[in-house]
Design a protein around this nucleic acid. Structure first.
Length: 268
DNA sequence: TTGTGTTTTATTGCCTCC
DNA sequence: GGAGGCAATAAAACACAA
């Protein structure tokens, strides 16, 4: 194998053969061309990874630290890697070699850096997604509680009005001959059998069986009930109403936010 | 200075794809 | 079977409070 291709090779087999990888710190990657860019000259002086043979085996080097020590990349190198990562979160082999050459790093180091960087990005993305979902959940919870309160309020109102109705109607429910009376329509009557007052889904019943007849002075109460039931239907019981579109809107928003939050969630 | 928590670099093992 | 990706993890480097 060509020694240089060995240096550049980051395959699994090769890296497993390089059990002395810690000692690859000794491998010479030097040469002026490799160190010319990005102003990394300064950092190279401190970095056993990338120095020249004379530097590596000099007293100065060994006085400083063991060559096996793990070294951090310079800020310039990191900056360049970050910039590249912004453009492409995975590197083609050619690009990796090019970048490694440019930075004076081993291709394997570049590959590892990108791997770790992807892992960090994924962690951050998970945190962002969690925060987003949590805020959506919290706002839905607030809405839900508000709806429950409204529902309870309406229920009490209906009960109270129902009581009023009952007290007014008791003597005349059957055989009523008063022409002023009228049959209540629009959901208040279902004929002669024990009727449910409201439409389906409205959980209360009139107390007495048969059709309901109200005096004129009951009209006000009747209209109030109709209003209340309409409100109840639109807010609580009608799944095709605004509530559905609201929740739909919430989840559409959520999806849009997730889509907008990052382009790499579904990495190829 | 030192103990401790966090970040970064690197390794290992497993998996998928070609 | 080789190449390369990812998850889990180790360990060095770093930051910082006490």
């Amino acid at each position: 194998m060509d020694p240089m291709s060995f240096l550049f090779d980051s395959s699994a087999a090769c890296r497993r053969n390089m059990l002395f990888l810690g000692n690859t710190d000794h491998l010479i990657f030097g040469g002026e061309s490799l160190r010319s860019s990005l102003g990394i000259e300064e950092s190279l002086k401190r970095r056993p990874f990338f120095c020249q043979p004379d530097d590596m085996f000099g007293d100065e080097y060994y006085d400083d630290q063991s060559p096996e020590k793990k070294r951090r990349l310079s800020s310039e190198q990191v900056h360049m890697l970050e910039k590249t990562f912004e453009a492409e979160n995975k590197l083609e082999p050619d690009r990796k070699l090019e970048l490694a050459k440019k930075l004076g790093l081993q291709p394997r180091q570049v590959a590892i850096w990108f791997q770790n960087r992807r892992a960090r990005w994924k962690t951050k993305q998970l945190e962002r997604d969690y925060d987003l979902l949590k805020s959506l959940y919290d706002s839905l919870l607030v809405d839900y509680d508000s709806i429950l309160r409204d529902n309870e309020k309406l229920r009490l109102e209906v009960t109270s009005l129902n009581e009023k109705l009952r007290t007014r109607e008791t003597p005349q429910t059957e055989n009523c001959a008063d022409p002023a009376m009228e049959k209540v329509g629009d959901g208040f009557s279902s004929g002669s059998s024990g009727s449910t007052v409201a439409n389906e889904g409205i959980p209360w019943h009139m107390g007495s069986p048969g059709s309901y007849y109200l005096h004129d002075d009951g009209d006000q109460i009747r209209h109030q009930l109709v209003d209340i039931m309409d409100a109840a239907k639109s807010e609580d019981y009608d799944s095709s109403g605004d509530d559905r579109s609201y929740f739909c809107g919430v989840f559409c928003d959520q999806q849009q936010q997730l889509e907008a939050s990052g382009g790499w969630w579904d990495w190829p």
